[in-house]
């Protein structure tokens, strides 16, 4: 057993998000005690109100940067951490926070807050890696517990965590799910990175793309397939933007095809 001193110091922080990814870590009830045997968890608001000033060996950051204060916080965490891990869709693709990208921010503020003069925001939501160096990303909304454990195990044994550079379709076939694209549904599975274990398609819901784009995502073909299935521009755009509004390649392809100014 490693001593408390030799264990890596681990912290969790949340920026703008629902904290669902940290909750997913807390949900690892069966494994949590064993995990705690290997790490010195100094900051985890789901489990303890204790605070720790750092430095950290590993710092998990969930959520998006929405304002200058959060940006400064992120930069500070980066400086204090040997390894910085972006946790979840908000941190890796901007997630649903990025839905406001491209929209008139003043109008949005007005409609949400009424008098919004005191609300300070950055104009765009970007993945954390656009602001600081991110060593690893764990995707998903929320992240998958088994991916978290696999990642942590690799890190603790000094190995390199492996990336799943393939689409959700792989996981669907292995689960022998009926292909929702074939059933006429609009499923982002073919262009979305695997890791969720085909979480949504396995219960009959088409993929919404929360793991972000798979490498070499054939966005053009996906748009074609959606159109063939009779989807309107509006529906296609909404589908693509749900979790990936900050993903340039997605938006570029959409813009090319659908000629929508604000994308």
């Amino acid at each position: 057993m490693p001593t408390e001193k030799s264990k890596p110091v681990v912290a969790f922080y949340g920026l703008t998000c629902c904290a669902g990814c940290q909750l997913e870590v807390l949900n690892l009830e069966e494994e949590l005690l064993e995990i705690l045997g290997h790490i010195n968890l100094v900051q985890f608001r789901m489990g303890s109100s204790a605070k720790h000033p750092g430095p950290y060996d590993v710092c998990f950051v969930e959520g998006s940067v929405t304002n200058e204060a959060e940006l400064a916080h992120l930069k500070e965490l980066r400086e204090k951490s040997k390894v910085l891990v972006a946790l979840g869709a908000c941190a890796t693709t901007g997630g649903v926070n990025a839905l406001r990208n491209g929209r008139n921010i003043e109008e949005l503020k007005q409609s949400v807050y009424g008098d919004a003069s005191h609300v300070r925001t950055l104009p765009q939501i970007q993945p954390l890696k656009e602001y600081v160096k991110v060593d690893y990303e764990l995707q998903g909304c929320p992240i998958a517990g088994d991916e978290f454990i696999e990642f942590l195990t690799a890190l603790l044994t000094g190995g390199e965590p492996s990336e799943k550079n393939y689409a959700v379709c792989v996981e669907c076939r292995l689960k022998e799910n009926i292909c929702l694209m074939k059933e006429g549904e609009l499923c982002l599975g073919p262009i979305t990175r695997a890791g969720c274990g085909a979480r949504c398609p396995s219960v009959g819901f088409p993929c919404e793309g929360c793991w972000g784009p798979v490498p070499q995502a054939n966005v053009e073909s996906e748009i074609n397939m959606f159109s063939q299935k009779g989807a309107s521009f509006d529906v296609v755009v909404r589908k693509f933007r749900m979790f990936n509004a900050s993903m340039e390649d997605f938006m570029k392809q959409l813009k090319k095809r659908l000629d929508i100014e604000w994308l």
Partner: peptide, 27 residues
């Protein structure tokens, strides 16, 4: 241009047999 490179065709193929090998360490 059409293909997603998703590999579904090969996974469901009765003659395909390629495999990858990975080490897994328990907690």
């Amino acid at each position: 241009n059409r293909c997603f490179g998703c590999g579904a065709c090969t996974l469901v193929c009765p003659t395909c047999f390629c495999f990858d090998v990975k080490d897994r360490v328990e907690l």
